[in-house]
């Protein structure tokens, strides 16, 4: 049975005009991502992988082409609609964790659910469940500064999962982590992917991530160079 497509990127172009010479970051990229994929977008610096991730995440708009997430062409949404869309459908994990430093781990995880106006009981239950899933049930009341890099990134994953998004976008999630933290984090994400069929899309240079991915999309000069499934 064919799995459901959660992301359809069709003939997407992105040109930046921030410098005197326009920079063509993407030149006609088309990919489909299915429910439950564990996919790495790889490529050298400047190849366009982060640009592609930003476009899929609705953080930026394509110059040309369409990006459909679920049933919505996100390129047609207004800024405010995009914010609401991201809140409901997309989980983000950033390279430098980007937790809210003044809140505890629990509050960081709870934050997006608060924006969604979920009731407290539901928030508390989901936060406890996620903190346990990322192995930090005993660090709920610690602030980010009291956690290691690996632990912070786990909290970031829990935060990304909290609103039950359609997929998780992770931009270089292991770039600031040591080997053990990287392995632990990847184990945890692979387990969530296997057990709960959560879709993960990574942009990465990290061979350790590439080794764990089941699909590797290689981008170079703004084009898809290779798209291979790994057994």
């Amino acid at each position: 049975m064919e799995r459901k497509k959660v992301i359809i990127v069709k003939d997407v172009y992105k040109t930046y005009h921030e410098t005197k010479v326009p920079v063509k970051a993407l030149r006609g990229v088309s990919i489909d991502i299915h429910q439950g994929e564990f996919t790495a977008i790889v490529g050298p610096s400047g190849s366009g992988k982060t640009t592609l991730l930003n476009l899929i995440g609705g953080l930026d708009r394509p110059t040309k082409g369409s990006i459909v997430v679920g049933d919505t062409d996100i390129a047609t949404l207004s800024d405010n609609q995009l914010i609401d869309f991201r809140k409901e459908h997309i989980g983000f994990v950033f390279q430098s964790y980007n937790l809210i430093p003044v809140l505890t781990a629990k509050e960081n995880v709870e934050f997006v659910m608060l924006l969604q106006k979920q009731p407290k009981a539901k928030r508390d239950a989901r936060t406890a469940e996620l903190m346990a899933a990322v192995g930090l049930a005993d660090r709920m009341d610690n602030r980010p500064s009291e956690l290691s890099g690996g632990q912070q990134q786990r909290v970031a994953v829990a935060r990304a999962l909290a609103p039950k998004p359609t997929f998780i976008l992770a931009d270089e999630p292991t770039a600031n982590l040591d080997s053990k933290s990287t392995a632990d984090l990847l184990d945890m994400m692979a387990k969530l992917n296997a057990d709960e069929h959560i879709t993960f899309v990574f942009s990465t240079h990290d061979q350790r991530v590439i080794d764990r991915a089941r699909r590797i999309i290689t981008i170079e000069d703004g084009k898809v160079l290779k798209d291979e499934w790994v057994q």
């Binding site: 995440g57 405010n80 914010i83 991201r86 809140k87 409901e88 983000f92 809210i100 934050f111 997006v112």
Partner: peptide, 9 residues
């Protein structure tokens, strides 16, 4: 980040 995760303007 706050805006990315859905905090509106």
């Amino acid at each position: 980040m706050l805006m990315a995760v859905g905090m509106n303007k």
